[in-house]
Deep mutational scan, measured.
Amino acid sequence: MAEQVALSRTQVCGILREELFQGDAFHQSDTHIFIIMGASGDLAKKKIYPTIWWLFRDGLLPENTFIVGYARSRLTVADIRKQSEPFFKATPEEKLKLEDFFARNSYVAGQYDDAASYQRLNSHMNALHLGSQANRLFYLALPPTVYEAVTKNIHESCMSQIGWNRIIVEKPFGRDLQSSDRLSNHISSLFREDQIYRIDHYLGKEMVQNLMVLRFANRIFGPIWNRDNIACVILTFKEPFGTEGRGGYFDEFGIIRDVMQNHLLQMLCLVAMEKPASTNSDDVRDEKVKVLKCISEVQANNVVLGQYVGNPDGEGEATKGYLDDPTVPRGSTTATFAAVVLYVENERWDGVPFILRCGKALNERKAEVRLQFHDVAGDIFHQQCKRNELVIRVQPNEAVYTKMMTKKPGMFFNPEESELDLTYGNRYKNVKLPDAYERLILDVFCGSQMHFVRSDELREAWRIFTPLLHQIELEKPKPIPYIYGSRGPTEADELMKRVGFQYEGTYKWVNP
């Protein structure tokens, strides 16, 4: 592979701008107003304001973009700056750019259920340069409990009458099928589907988006991507930290609602779906819905739930269990780990287990898709061969690698495990991989909904998990304890083995 010439960040961002501006969906010269509902909250200060700053800094926003914060707290732009700027990672050389960014910011205080507050917000936006005809993007960085009041008031008082209007809704989209349907029906009564952007930030990850290209742009994968060759698929999300004093919020939802029903299920769809007619948003989402419709409700015998306990040999936070978090209700049975087996009941995947695993306070930070292939028929190497695996590593250190057998150097035919490896950090030294939120917010500006969740996708996802969630809430089974920093409950490994996964433990990928 030829040595790549190092590029400056300015040059890299210039390439990104060229890609972005050559499309006809990006209205570079139009006025846009980006409204952050819930501007005083954690999500706004840690993710949304920093993301908008990065896009502005790199010249990736339309030229005439204004940012308006809205929340109940009586704040000023200076207050917003004070709480969000520490997350910007701005350099001293960017000081003038930073001043320009905050000059485009404003803030309006108001209630979430008060019509007069929204009329005041609308008047404020109209007073901005060309504000009355601007395109408006409303980001709901809010708890779902206020979605209905907020969307109703936005629709009645704050819509642009000339430009387009788009609304970005953060997960969780309800707690179960019934609450999700209620919320979807409410929002759909106010906005068209092409105006609604239900954001799952995992769909903005580079390697998640790469799944489609790997599958449908490489001839070698087509013939082997089926039940005849693939023994099982494992989708993993692991965090090495616990709730760390923020367990009160987590306890309301648990690990299945927080990660599995959305992030992991979306990745499953991209692995299992048929080739779409095109890369058009609805063509892709149509195929994802077909996959979900082929999955039956989760069966309790295919589920393992766990909850982390303190590690007596650990240090600091590792010595504390979930129930030691003062914000967690006493005696909570909320799971911090889950392993679930699903089956896609169609011709391509009949009988292939899709194993979804996620948890907190585990032994490493990792998100990946792992396809394990069947054993080689007619073994001539005296059971020395391990199964081939194709691994798409989402985070950290984005990579695609194939675990395969090669001859060990020497005189004899002794096979050993090795890999074919594409590590993004080595291959793409001159490429700026956008943060997931950067990519998705740019998608909203461009009107691309491919990486957002459609209402029928959402409904099918909740259909699969709601009976299990209701059973857990009714019966309150005690989750299996696992030690902070471990791989999780051993019962999860036993479940995976029972459905056909072979864990060798003899080879570990190392970032080159």
Rank of each mutant, 00 (worst) to 15 (best):
A2W: 03
A2L: 08
E3F: 02
Q4W: 10
V5A: 10
V5K: 14
V5P: 09
A6M: 14
A6V: 11
L7N: 09
L7G: 08
S8W: 04
S8E: 04
R9L: 05
R9P: 06
Q11N: 10
G14D: 10
G14E: 11
R17S: 08
R17P: 09
E18Q: 11
E18V: 03
E18N: 10
E18S: 10
E18W: 08
E19R: 06
E19N: 09
L20F: 04
L20W: 09
L20T: 02
F21H: 14
F21S: 09
F21D: 07
Q22T: 08
Q22F: 15
G23R: 12
G23T: 15
D24K: 06
D24P: 13
F26M: 09
F26W: 07
F26I: 12
F26P: 14
F26R: 05
H27G: 11
H27S: 15
H27Q: 13
H27K: 09
S29V: 07
D30L: 08
D30V: 04
T31I: 11
T31H: 10
H32M: 15
I33D: 03
I33G: 02
I35V: 08
I36G: 01
I36K: 01
I36N: 01
I36T: 02
I36L: 05
M37H: 02
G38T: 00
A39K: 00
A39H: 00
S40R: 03
S40D: 07
G41H: 15
L43I: 09
L43K: 13
L43E: 08
A44E: 00
A44G: 03
A44V: 04
K45N: 13
K46N: 07
K47M: 13
I48W: 01
I48R: 00
Y49E: 00
Y49S: 00
P50Y: 00
T51P: 03
I52Q: 00
I52W: 02
I52Y: 07
W53G: 00
W54A: 09
L55Y: 06
L55C: 10
F56V: 02
F56H: 03
F56A: 02
R57K: 12
L60P: 00
L61I: 07
L61H: 00
P62C: 02
E63A: 10
E63T: 12
T65C: 14
T65E: 00
F66N: 04
V68G: 02
G69E: 00
Y70K: 00
Y70G: 01
A71D: 15
A71F: 02
R74T: 04
R74P: 08
L75K: 10
L75R: 06
V77F: 08
V77N: 09
A78S: 10
D79I: 04
I80C: 03
I80P: 00
R81I: 05
R81A: 05
K82I: 10
K82L: 08
S84G: 05
S84V: 08
E85Y: 06
E85V: 11
P86Y: 05
P86E: 10
F88Y: 03
A90S: 03
A90M: 05
T91Q: 11
T91C: 07
P92L: 07
P92K: 10
E93P: 06
E94T: 03
E94K: 02
K95E: 09
E99Q: 11
D100G: 05
D100F: 14
F101N: 00
F101Q: 00
F102P: 00
F102I: 04
F102V: 02
A103G: 09
A103E: 10
A103N: 11
R104Y: 03
N105H: 07
S106L: 07
V108G: 01
V108S: 02
Q111L: 06
D113V: 03
D113G: 11
D113I: 02
A116K: 06
A116G: 08
A116E: 14
S117T: 05
Y118T: 02
Y118E: 00
Y118L: 11
Q119C: 14
R120F: 05
R120S: 08
R120G: 10
L121D: 00
L121K: 01
N122D: 12
S123A: 13
S123I: 07
S123K: 12
H124W: 10
H124I: 03
H124F: 07
H124N: 06
M125G: 01
N126C: 08
L128A: 04
L128G: 02
L130A: 09
L130P: 11
G131V: 04
S132L: 11
Q133T: 12
N135P: 03
R136V: 04
R136N: 04
F138N: 01
Y139L: 03
Y139R: 00
Y139Q: 03
L140H: 02
L140R: 00
A141T: 05
A141R: 02
P143N: 10
P144D: 14
T145D: 12
T145E: 07
Y147W: 06
Y147E: 11
E148A: 11
A149P: 07
A149S: 13
A149K: 07
V150P: 01
V150N: 02
V150K: 00
N153M: 07
I154S: 01
E156F: 05
S157G: 07
C158P: 00
M159R: 14
M159P: 05
M159D: 04
Q161F: 08
I162C: 09
W164T: 04
W164E: 04
N165L: 04
R166C: 01
R166G: 01
I167G: 02
I167A: 02
I167C: 08
I168V: 06
I168G: 01
I168E: 00
V169Q: 13
V169E: 07
E170L: 03
E170V: 08
K171C: 06
K171V: 05
K171E: 05
K171P: 14
P172I: 08
P172F: 05
P172S: 05
F173T: 04
G174Q: 04
G174M: 07
R175P: 07
R175K: 08
R175D: 09
D176E: 08
D176H: 07
Q178N: 11
Q178V: 14
S184F: 06
S184Y: 08
S184R: 04
N185E: 11
H186V: 10
H186I: 07
H186D: 03
I187K: 02
I187H: 03
I187Q: 03
S189N: 14
R192M: 10
E193Q: 04
E193T: 03
Q195V: 05
I196F: 01
I196R: 00
Y197W: 12
I199V: 09
I199Q: 02
H201T: 12
Y202H: 15
L203P: 14
G204A: 14
G204T: 15
E206S: 14
E206L: 05
M207T: 15
M207H: 14
M207K: 03
V208G: 15
V208H: 13
V208T: 15
Q209M: 12
Q209F: 11
L211C: 09
L211I: 04
M212A: 03
M212F: 13
M212P: 02
V213A: 10
V213G: 12
L214I: 12
L214R: 02
R215Q: 02
F216T: 07
A217G: 04
A217H: 04
A217C: 05
N218G: 00
N218Y: 00
I220V: 09
F221Y: 14
F221S: 13
F221P: 03
G222H: 08
I224C: 10
I224K: 01
I224A: 15
N226F: 02
R227L: 05
D228P: 03
N229M: 03
N229F: 04
I230D: 02
A231L: 04
A231S: 13
C232W: 02
C232E: 06
V233E: 01
L235C: 14
P240K: 12
P240Y: 05
G242W: 03
G242F: 08
T243P: 12
G245A: 12
G245Y: 09
R246L: 13
G247D: 13
G247T: 11
G248Q: 13
Y249G: 15
F250K: 03
D251T: 05
E252K: 13
F253T: 13
G254D: 11
I256G: 00
